[in-house]
């Protein structure tokens, strides 16, 4: 029963976050994941609700991530000629962005004195939650830590990414999509769809390709690095 209530609370908080986002013309700081989470967390603390109880309701929304991922095939099919025409630059950009993210994450955390287990949980941060948790498991990282890192990565990328790209003179919607999808997975892609279908499509493609390549290659790289 309480699961259903928390499901309703989450949807209401999300709708309120959308209203706020519209008020401020979709300003990236009004990120719906961030804005909607806060009142839900406050309600949980106020009613002394455990995380497990909350997720009895939350799991229904998380379950919809699967069909939503499959649904990315539809804008991809509609925009197929554009994606095909950009295939070369797309693969180059995804490869370069993905490697940069892994390398800078490991080097920064290592230089600041992080433990090996933290490093292993940090490496798969650019890809969507189930892939990242799987990689953390196979490389003896910490799956729950990896999941938390993935969500923060998505929010940081979605909130700061578009602004930073524009500051650096990148305004092409397809480039915004590739960057958001490569570095900030689904939350970045959600942001990209707010900017437009073309941006969203390229973000979805980048997220998918990066996810597949990371799942297949990153465990080998980490085993080689950390033995």
């Amino acid at each position: 029963m309480s699961g259903v209530i928390w499901l309703a609370v989450t949807v209401i908080a999300y709708v309120a976050a959308l209203v706020l986002a519209r008020r401020v013309n979709g300003h990236p700081l009004a990120n719906p994941v961030l804005v909607a989470s806060i009142p839900v967390i406050i309600a949980m603390v106020a009613t002394d609700t455990s995380h497990e109880t909350y997720q009895e309701g939350g799991i229904w929304l998380l379950a919809l991530l699967g069909p939503a991922t499959v649904a990315l095939a539809i804008p991809l099919f509609r925009n197929w000629p554009n994606v095909r025409a950009a295939a070369g630059p797309l693969f180059l950009a995804i490869g370069a962005g993905s490697l940069t993210a892994v390398a800078t994450a490991l080097v920064t955390a290592w230089a600041l004195g992080a433990e090996t287990q933290t490093l292993l949980s940090l490496a798969p941060k650019s890809v969507t939650t189930p892939i990242a948790m799987g990689i953390a498991d196979t490389t003896s990282g910490l799956a729950s830590l990896a999941a938390a890192i993935v969500i923060i990565t998505g929010i940081v990328g979605a909130v700061i990414g578009p602004w930073l790209l524009r500051k650096l003179g990148i305004t092409d919607p397809e480039a915004h999509g590739v960057a958001l999808g490569t570095a900030a997975h689904g939350i970045g892609t959600a942001r990209a769809f707010q900017e437009g279908e073309e941006t969203g499509t390229f973000s979805g493609v980048a997220m998918g390709i990066n996810g597949i390549a990371t799942a297949l290659l990153l465990p080998w790289l980490l085993i080689w690095l950390f033995g």
Binding site: L112, A114, L122, T153, L168, A183, A206
Partner: peptide, 28 residues
């Protein structure tokens, strides 16, 4: 968990996310 290793984790997340994003955008 995020408080592990002092602020190292948080700094690493921010630095790597934004560098990956910018590199992907520029290379494209």
């Amino acid at each position: 968990l995020l408080a592990r290793d002092g602020g190292a984790l948080t700094v690493a997340i921010a630095v790597s996310t934004l560098s990956g994003l910018v590199v992907a955008g520029f290379v494209f």
